[in-house]
Design a protein around this nucleic acid. Structure first.
Length: 477
RNA sequence: GCCUCAGUAGCUCAGCCGGUUAGAGCGGCGGACUGUUAAUCCGUAGGUCGUAGGUUCGAGCCCUACCUGAGGCGCCA
């Protein structure tokens, strides 16, 4: 076995004077003498000092950018100013040469677009290793948050047979021949001959299954991949993304909003506490990037300042009615600068949401009680008979990070809403059963995992916070 | 799906009104360097100008189509 020590452990335990072995990749080799080595265990690098009298030139010649090496030597306080510790190398062994004439990465700033094409190498960069360490931390914090509050982790199915989830275009799952599928009497594809005996798709939401569980276990959450076959080409959409969907019995829309706000703040606070070095690097990266922008296009708050601000301030809570009233009083509305009309009954457009979050309140905003006609059938009808108990959490920069609602628990109202939405109640009999037999008031929401990671890391494009992005026309790796 | 912009060396870009042999920085390669921190210094090799047509005496530059990428919008998380 390898008797090696991780860099993170050395920096923590500081075994001054001890002989240690480290393995990792070269980030820089300066003055033919100083190696900056990283092994993924820590955001930073460890300096290795090479004495040319101890290490042969045949070895030092091969110490290049991102070459993999093993070093044995003594751990010491550093004489240089840039770092606290270093290893004085006794031996250096090349574990993996790197042919720099062919290697695409370079020790310099490279664009996200270029690195995205090299997804098998991009995690080696400081930016992406920081992003993916934080992605891990957020995922872990999700489980910790719910576990600590008595929620059960429910594994919703990836392949589903229900076609009424209503959250967007679905990817079909089939084993039928694409050339000659079996046809029924009407000349249409006969999915009864397919693997599952019916048409099946990749899930667009675990909510409906979540409701089943919540009405037995009380409080549950799902956390898994979700698929949307929408032709969405934006920096905020993926065809395959991860979603967290808590569902709670005996929660009304206000309880639901309280949980959503606490959840967002917890995730951010967790990363602030556990990934300070990574965040500091990303904060700096963002500041550098914004230097090239005109002053009015720069963020008002730095990344760290913004995260602290969100954790330490209450989200603004307004109703849809209030949102429309505020927008109608706004300068851009009066000057005719909005592209889309503001009118009760129309959905809020991205430009309207951005005005509320970034100009009017300058903090996260929760809008609730939307007109029934622009929201899904399962959302609970309010007493005014015009709005439903839906809520969206809007974040600066990325827009909607959470969408949720109190669910309609009254069978007759639900059937009425289904019929008006063009959904056949008989196809969702099991869903109606939940109301018929011991139904309970309940609520839930969905949080887009990548959007939250995007907000926390300050990355501009959602494709840069998931290891292998799937978008229209792209499924590499 | 709609709209806008872009594609020139490995990367990031410049290239004037269409006019000789297409440039720079970084990176690579060769060399120097025993305290460097985006190391530095000297030298050097890299190009079918996204693809296919067209206009023209002449196209990196103008026109058309397509491909790819980015941004905005819509759909949403």
């Amino acid at each position: 076995m390898y008797n090696r020590t991780e860099i993170a452990s050395l920096l923590k335990n500081q075994p001054i004077g001890e002989k240690v072995t480290v393995m990792g990749w070269v980030r820089a080799f300066r003055n033919n003498q100083f190696i900056a080595l990283h092994d993924g265990s820590d955001a930073g690098t460890l300096q290795i000092v090479v004495d040319p009298e101890k290490i042969a030139a045949t070895i030092t010649r091969r110490i290049g950018f991102h070459a993999c090496i093993m070093v044995t030597g003594s751990f010491q306080s550093s004489q240089g100013a840039g770092q606290q510790f270093e290893i004085l190398a006794d031996t250096v062994e090349i574990l993996g040469d790197n042919d720099l004439e062919k290697y695409p990465l370079q020790p310099k700033r490279q664009t996200m677009e270029f690195l995205r094409q090299k997804a098998h190498f991009r995690m080696r960069t400081q930016t992406f290793s920081a992003v993916f360490r934080i992605r891990h931390a957020v995922a872990f914090a999700v489980h910790k948050f719910y576990n600590d509050r008595g929620f059960y982790y429910l594994h919703a199915p990836i392949i589903t047979g229900s076609d009424a989830e209503g959250a967007g275009e679905m990817f079909r799952v089939t084993m039928l021949s694409p050339d000659k599928p079996p046809l029924n009497d009407e000349g249409k594809v006969d999915f009864s001959k397919d693997f599952f005996g019916k048409a099946t798709n990749l899930t667009v939401s675990g909510q409906l299954q979540g409701e089943i569980a919540a009405l037995a276990l009380g409080k549950i959450y799902t956390f898994g991949p979700t698929f949307r076959a929408e032709n969405s080409n934006t920096p905020r959409h993926l065809a395959e993304f991860w979603m967290i969907e808590p569902e709670m019995a005996f929660y009304d829309i206000i309880d639901n909003m309280d949980l959503a706000e606490a959840f967002c703040k917890y995730l951010i606070a967790y990363v602030l506490e556990h990934n300070a070095t990574d965040l500091a690097f990303l904060d700096q990266r963002l500041k550098e990037e914004e230097k090239s922008l005109p002053t009015d296009k720069r963020r008002e708050l730095g990344l760290l300042e913004q995260l602290e601000f969100v954790v330490n301030n209450d989200f603004v809570r307004i109703t849809y009615d209030e949102a429309v009233a505020i927008l109608m009083q706004s300068k851009p509305y009066k000057k005719g600068q909005f592209e889309f009309p503001v009118e009760w009954g129309r959905d809020l457009q991205a430009e309207h949401e951005r005005y509320l979050v970034e100009k009017e309140f300058k903090k996260p905003v929760i809008v609730r009680n939307y007109p029934k006609d622009i929201k899904a059938f399962y959302m609970r009808m309010n007493d005014d008979d015009k709005t439903v108990a839906a809520m969206d959490v809007l974040f600066p920069g990325i827009g909607e990070v959470i969408g949720g609602s109190q669910r309609e628990e009254r069978e007759s109202v639900l059937i009425d809403r289904m019929e008006k939405s063009g959904i056949h109640p008989e196809e969702m009999d099991w869903y109606l059963d939940l109301r018929r037999f011991g139904g309970a008031p309940h609520s839930g929401f969905g949080l887009g995992f990548e959007r939250m990671v995007q907000f926390i890391t300050g990355m501009g494009n959602i494709r840069d916070v998931i290891p292998f992005p799937r978008t229209p026309g792209n499924a590499e790796f």
